[in-house]
Design a protein around this nucleic acid. Structure first.
Lengths: 200, 200
DNA sequence: GTCTATAGCGGGATAGAC
DNA sequence: GTCTATCCCGCTATAGAC
């Protein structure tokens, strides 16, 4: 139902909702606030969405879908070294989180607010995105760029990236790309250099 | 006011509140739910706390204070290598997050829900805890155990640790200590070995 | 597709008896 | 320190006119 109903109007409303959800959190965002931001009255909102839950689901679907396609695009553009691919992935992730500052953040931080039905419907999307991450991590492990457990490394790296939302200052000197670079420098022993002797 | 008013009763109520805040989130936890968990009626709750905000502040103060003293304790017990200290710090952090599963999680995940006054009152506590982290990171940098920017490394490491709350399974095979070990193995090139030739 | 008006509910918090 | 009773408010969602 959501996947099909993609009128430009609805997409625009979804974009505005994402902004508010990031600023205030889903629970504290009222339908009145949403309506005002959209330039309509609260009653009119329910012509576009069945209920508040459906707005959240739309935002999260949009956010994950977007992150997924941007990440895929970034990876297509670099088939070279494992390090370049890891960097591209981290950079794409951070840009959807910190530059966009919208739907992807909601997807990560308000996932638990989805009802069972929506979680069920959207989990395959999230899984696809995480699978992309695990593949890139795998390549980096095989290349000897990093070391450790595949699962744990993925979680730690994504955690480090996801948490940037809490402290990153867009007005500051560092760009998302810089963060991506620094993170990889932190976990890859000899960045852009010979692999380790001890392969895992 | 909060600092002084530390009756055992209030402490117990704070502990119960922390549990609910973790499970449901602050916004979705009603005073009626809190009261029921405490075995009293909702009206009685306001004999112990002025309002719902004050409960949150009490939980976060407790959680941060506790994390701080446990971390200090852990560091006192190991004055040896920078790696041992880093490990002790990560382990202490994870245990207050994942074993306790209580106030420290609330302190991290519901900080934004504090009103301006409470944030002002509690920020020095949070700063003290983060300063502890930065000191340990500094030592590790100076020892050549890890490399990178002091500020960014701190944020990345804390982010990786804080995000574990989202995926860690207490029933699974891995203990918090294992996670601490794996994280350090990921960022320290030659764990428990000679330092790098390239000091930062 | 948007409006006004409002139903219906559940939230935080208070008052005063015990 | 806890109870009952209740106020008042703001929230989500609906109904029907335009």
């Amino acid at each position: 139902m959501n996947v099909v109903n993609e009128s430009p109007r609805r997409k625009e409303l979804t974009r505005l909702a994402a902004q508010l959800f990031v600023q205030e959190g889903f629970d504290r965002t009222t339908v009145r606030m949403l309506a005002q931001e959209m330039g309509i009255k609260s009653g009119s909102l329910f012509h576009h969405f069945r209920d508040k839950q459906e707005i959240l689901a739309a935002v999260i679907e949009e956010g994950t879908q977007n992150a997924l396609s941007i990440a895929r695009q970034a990876l297509e553009g670099c088939e070279d070294s494992a390090e370049a691919r890891l960097h591209a992935m981290a950079r794409a992730h951070l840009e959807t989180l910190l530059t966009d500052r919208n739907a992807h953040v909601v997807a990560l931080y308000e996932w638990r607010r989805l009802d069972a039905e929506a979680r069920d419907h959207l989990s395959h999307l999230r899984d696809a995105y995480e699978a992309l991450w695990e593949r890139v991590i795998d390549e980096a492990l095989e290349a000897g760029l990093i070391r450790g457990d595949r699962f744990l490394v993925s979680r730690f790296v994504m955690g480090a990236l996801n948490w940037t939302v809490r402290w990153y200052d867009p007005e500051g000197p560092r760009k998302p790309e810089d963060l991506a670079h620094e993170l990889i420098a932190m976990i890859a022993p000899a960045s852009s250099d010979a692999p380790l002797s001890t392969k895992v």
